[in-house]
């Protein structure tokens, strides 16, 4: 066991961990941040995406010890300071961009990472940006609309509507 320290959602945390402890285990089991989910074991589904030092990372495919000292943001850290949902979260609700909610945290984190580097993505860019996040419920239609709305493009830019 070694002590691993990092900043999670703005808060400094420190825990004894094994070498094999994955970041997602550190967050879920260690810190009780169960908003980050595990949907596969081959790094394909994206339910576990969080941000490490500002970039999206599959937290099931990185060891906690390897991001020691880093700044981690999870879905629990995406709300506004007053506790209300952030713009992207609100857009997901407005556009019905989620159903069972299981892929949703990872989807929101990946969408946020996309908007950080591309504030007004096209429909194709949104779909490409979410390539690593599998949703089995929505058919992605309303997720695309939600990201459009959050980027201030309403849904006007979505071709088929």
């Amino acid at each position: 066991m070694t002590k691993v320290s990092m900043t999670v959602n703005g808060k400094a945390v420190s825990r004894e961990t094994e070498g094999r402890t994955l970041l997602v285990q550190f967050l879920r089991d260690g810190m009780g941040l169960t908003g980050t989910h595990v949907g596969c074991d081959t790094s394909q589904c994206g339910a576990c995406v969080v941000h490490v030092d500002g970039v999206p990372v599959k937290s099931c495919t990185v060891f906690a010890a390897d991001v020691a000292g880093g700044h981690v943001t999870t879905i629990e850290g995406m709300a506004n300071a007053d506790g209300t949902m952030g713009r992207l979260q609100q857009a997901f609700q407005d556009c019905h961009g989620l159903q069972c909610g299981f892929c949703t945290p990872g989807m929101v984190m990946s969408a946020a990472a996309l908007l950080a580097v591309n504030p007004t993505p096209t429909e194709a860019e949104i779909r490409a940006g979410l390539e690593g996040n599998i949703c089995r419920c929505t058919g992605y239609h309303n997720i695309v609309r939600a990201v459009m709305q959050a980027s201030g493009q309403a849904s006007a830019a979505v071709a088929a509507e």
Partner: peptide, 14 residues
């Protein structure tokens, strides 16, 4: 949606 979007859903693995 609010609980799902804020990481407060309570799934069995939680």
């Amino acid at each position: 949606d609010v609980r799902f979007l804020t990481g407060k859903g309570r799934y069995t693995d939680d």
